[in-house]
Write a protein that binds this DNA or RNA. Structure first.
Length: 486
RNA sequence: GCGGAAGUCGUAUAGUGGCUAUUACCUCAGCCUUCCAAGCUGAUGACGACAGUUCGAUUCUGUUCUUCCGCUCCA
């Protein structure tokens, strides 16, 4: 799918070499699909979070943020459907590589034999229910093998053992394991918003339509976690749940689809790198859903999902918690001339993977340039981040250490560091310092030289064009601030 | 989870059943220099882990961990 060759291995090496992303527990050989952000990666991450938060919360008077706990009441995951949907025993056929839910496989078999042998089918179903209730995986496999249940694709009976796949991580609450309740690490941040819906609505005096935003960690015990930071077991989401009047969800869904794509394009990434993918098969809670996909080194993949979740979640929580999740709408319905009254709001969700966004920005920024001339071979690796995302905004170099140039540069550093992240460097030749900054994606470098002492001008060097300009020292701050604002 | 490939300093690499494991870049210290990876001198730093075979294993075998590619999965 990707038009260029897959340069993901180069990006991974670069991220490690220059302090963006390290394998977790590196000195112990790493931990599968877990990564740590290094000194520059954490800045990039923070910048992306800030931009998202600003665009969602600060730019919308009717959206507020929260930060809910990772641990939540276990019943929440029953209400949300996560427990039922992801605790099913599965079995794989070794020939067709097809994976089945064990209950589906057995039920399918029973339907087939029911015509000729109703008694056997009923017996099997009773046995299956008993085995499922007892979590007897060995017994379940035996049942499948004994009755010669075949894979529909390969037609063979070559099965793996029955295994339980639950995508949620669990742990115990309380110090004594036997007495304690099993609780889950949240597999999505959305439920933390739903269960706080009324808290926020009442204390914030929010009127529908309104939204609640949250950035936070989520955990999924993925069977196959791969693709560098694309699919990790511990990851961070940026979600916003928008509560609307029933019947208006379609227009809000379209609104947020467009608004979110605009946000992506504002990162300076070309529209041709994005596409929408509309879901045909909808999840149990949705009445419309699409993904925003980005052209990663390994092809088009989902970065963000926009889902019209109906009133499924709030209704479920109302049922399980026995607490009303209703909103009283005072606005007048023109059709009846009366207020809309009490209802469970519908929800339109935007949910973007922060780590995926980082990978997106990195793979978009990563560039290898050939700068060879006839005399000399030369190349550079440059991360062409939009200035607002760059970990370091400005690097300040004295051309040389002596003659008071270093002191001047330090002064500038002290003045500017309050406004944005600056980096000071006096080691090595100036060209080398420029190239080092290219590799970190620093959009601007200024060099203090002897002329600075005379007329207060400095050389500003631009990352992307490698052009240099002589400007007044006092103008530099405005140049940088202007660039990181847009 | 299945199939394939691979693990050597921070990165990229060479090589070997046996002497101090190669090279480049990076990094660090010093000298010199100063507007695009300059030069010189010196330094740090690696055979993924655990077993087995062997007089001796980084090299062969097995297990394991990790990564990449393809499939599969993906509320």
């Amino acid at each position: 799918m990707a038009t260029e060759q897959n340069n993901l291995p180069d990006i991974i090496s670069h991220c490690k070499e220059y302090g963006f992303i390290f394998p977790s527990s590196d000195i112990y050989d790493g931990l599968s699909a877990v990564y740590d952000y290094g000194q520059w990666g954490v800045e990039l991450k923070k910048n992306i979070k800030d931009i998202w938060w600003k665009s969602m919360v600060y730019m919308h008077e009717n959206i507020v943020g929260i930060d809910s706990a990772i641990f939540m009441h276990p019943t929440i995951w029953k209400a949300s459907g996560h427990v039922d949907n992801f605790s099913d025993p599965m079995i794989d056929n070794l020939d067709s590589k097809k994976r089945y839910r064990v209950d589906h496989l057995i039920e399918g078999f029973c339907e087939q034999v029911a015509d000729s042998n109703k008694q056997l089918a009923d017996e099997l179903l009773v046995k299956m229910d008993a085995l499922l209730a007892a979590d007897d995986f060995v017994g379940l496999k035996q049942l499948i093998v004994d009755n010669n249940m075949k894979c529909a694709v390969s037609g063979t009976c070559n099965w793996t053992d029955v295994r339980q796949f639950n995508l949620m991580f669990s742990t115990q609450l309380g110090s004594v394991a036997e007495d304690s309740d099993t609780i889950y690490l949240r597999p999505e941040t959305a439920q933390g918003i739903f269960v706080n819906f009324l808290n926020v609505q009442k204390t914030g005096r929010m009127k529908i339509p309104f939204g609640i935003a949250q950035i936070g960690k989520a955990f999924r015990n993925e069977i196959v976690a791969r693709g560098f930071i694309f699919r990790m077991r511990e990851f961070e989401q940026m979600e916003m749940q928008f509560f609307v009047r029933p019947g208006t969800q379609k227009e809000w869904y379209e609104y947020w689809k467009e608004a979110r794509m605009k946000w992506h394009l504002a990162l300076g990434i070309s529209a041709s790198k994005y596409r929408f993918h509309d879901h045909v098969k909808l999840a149990h809670y949705a009445d419309a859903a699409c993904d925003i996909e980005f052209d990663f080194p390994m092809g088009f993949k989902e970065v963000e999902g926009i889902h019209s979740r109906t009133n499924f979640d709030l209704s479920q929580h109302q049922e399980y918690s026995k607490k009303k999740q209703m909103y009283f709408d005072n606005d007048i319905d023109e059709a009846t001339g009366k207020p809309y009254g009490n209802y469970i709001p519908y929800v339109v969700e935007t949910s973007i993977g922060l780590d995926r966004t980082i990978l997106m920005v990195l793979s978009e920024a990563y560039t290898v340039e050939d700068l060879s001339t006839e005399d000399k071979k030369d190349s550079r690796v440059v991360l062409k981040f939009p200035p607002k995302l760059a970990p370091i905004k400005l690097a300040i170099f004295p051309l040389m250490k002596k003659d008071g140039l270093a002191e001047l540069a330090r002064e500038m550093m002290n003045e500017y560091r309050e406004d944005f992240f600056c980096f000071y460097e006096e080691k090595d030749a100036i060209g080398k310092r420029y190239r080092r900054m290219d590799a970190l994606g620093t959009p601007f470098c200024v060099t203090i030289d002897h002329q600075t002492k005379e007329d207060g001008t400095v050389t500003i060097r631009y990352r992307d064009s490698m052009d240099q300009e002589r400007v007044k020292m006092s103008d530099v701050k405005a140049i940088v601030l202007n660039a990181i604002k847009s």
